[in-house]
Amino acid sequence: MKRILLIITALCLSFLVNAQDELPIRGLAIAVPDKATVGRFVKFINEELPPRKINTLVLRVDYNFQYKSYPELAQENGLSQDDVNKIVTVCQKHGIEIVPQINLLGHQSWASNLGMLLKVYPEFDETPGVTLPEKYEWPNEDGLYCKSYCPLHPDVHKVVFELVDEIVAAFQANAFHAGMDEVFYIGQEECPRCNGRDKAELFAGELTKIRNHLAQSGKKLWIWGDRLLDGKTTGLGMWEASMNNTHRAIDMIPKDIMICDWHYERVEPTAAYFALKGFDVATSSWRKGAVAQEQLTFLENIRKNAKEETAQHIKGMVHTSWSSVSSFLDGFYAPLDKSKVDDAVCFRMLFGE
């Protein structure tokens, strides 16, 4: 009897240990390093990610790459193809999928700084009449968080799709992350093309256009999911969800779009909502280790208890870092303090030591 109890106990412990391993996606979303940090980042990938069974890297590239299609859009001292090859090689060595990201639609500016796309092509600006202030503050009279490009401008997709194709090829990727989060400027009255248009239809149209372009070469679209959630009904508000009615786009877009569902302060059941709608979904954590672990438990419970039609769409966790790679690595290699609110500490708590 004692031997049988020991076997049962071992099996139960094995199930608990392996529960995380069953999640198809164990990911980290982080900026690409600057040129000086590429070697350190490659070392981190090689030594630290395989033991934690990380199999996905979402890399925010944006304009930090020496683009050949539109070199005028590349940031000064952007990564070369040789730099990128070092990251690709180490990821391929360990079976880690890279999903490169360029922010599309929204996030075309930050605070008082205009992004490269609108800096070079100001005609793409959805709100050209809104001037970036010398000192940015929120809230402000213009409702300015980040600028957007106009999704109906006849020339914008020729530019952004060439960038997308180039960066997907550079990283030898099978998927692309388009961002699409926190879009406040869409369907603005002052835009001659978007004025009077349904914001949900505009958002859905842009998502579908990006998805269809990627599908032509067999690539998958990833996005952040906040604009597909109703901020009013859920109480999630304007940051984690939409207050300008883009949430209705969820019923207008292809179901093969991968959703990264981010909530950083608490566990929200929205991953289940996306799964019930038929979308693959991964929950994204940031700086609170205890919250991240609760989110993981929530996902595991859905996968364990829901019908297969729903459970199959729960893909895992993609932890996010919004600092520089150097800052993240400094925190990662510092002594672990689980009481600290920090992206690197949260990553270590979520995926183990």
Rank of each mutant, 00 (worst) to 15 (best):
R3A: 14
T9M: 12
C12V: 15
D21F: 05
P24W: 01
R26T: 01
V32C: 02
A36L: 10
T37Q: 13
R40K: 11
F41L: 08
F41H: 10
K43Q: 12
P51M: 07
R52E: 12
T56M: 03
V58H: 04
L59Q: 08
N64W: 03
F65D: 12
K68D: 15
S69Y: 09
P71E: 15
N85T: 06
N85C: 05
V88N: 14
T89A: 15
Q92K: 15
H94R: 09
H94T: 06
G95A: 07
P100H: 01
L104Q: 09
G106Y: 08
H107Q: 13
H107A: 11
A111L: 09
G115E: 08
M116N: 11
L117T: 07
L118I: 05
Y121A: 13
Y121T: 09
V130A: 03
V130G: 02
T131M: 10
K135A: 12
Y136R: 08
D142I: 00
G143D: 08
G143N: 12
L144E: 02
Y149D: 03
Y149A: 11
E162Y: 03
I167G: 00
N174G: 09
F176S: 06
H177L: 09
C194K: 00
G196T: 01
A200L: 01
L202P: 00
F203H: 01
G205V: 12
G205F: 10
E206N: 04
T208W: 07
S217D: 12
K219P: 02
W222F: 15
I223V: 12
D226T: 06
D226A: 06
R227W: 15
L228E: 10
L229T: 15
D230M: 10
T234P: 01
M238S: 11
M238F: 14
S242T: 14
N244M: 11
N244F: 04
T246R: 09
H247V: 10
D251A: 09
D251P: 05
M252H: 04
I259Q: 03
E265V: 13
R266N: 07
F274D: 11
A275Y: 05
L276W: 02
D280A: 06
D280Y: 08
S284P: 10
S284C: 14
R287L: 08
G289A: 13
R303T: 07
K304L: 09
N305I: 07
N305D: 13
A306P: 10
E309T: 11
T310K: 09
A311W: 07
I314N: 02
I314K: 00
G316C: 06
V318F: 02
V325F: 05
S327R: 07
D330S: 05
D330I: 01
K338F: 00
K340L: 11
F347N: 03
R348D: 04
R348E: 00
M349R: 05
G352E: 02
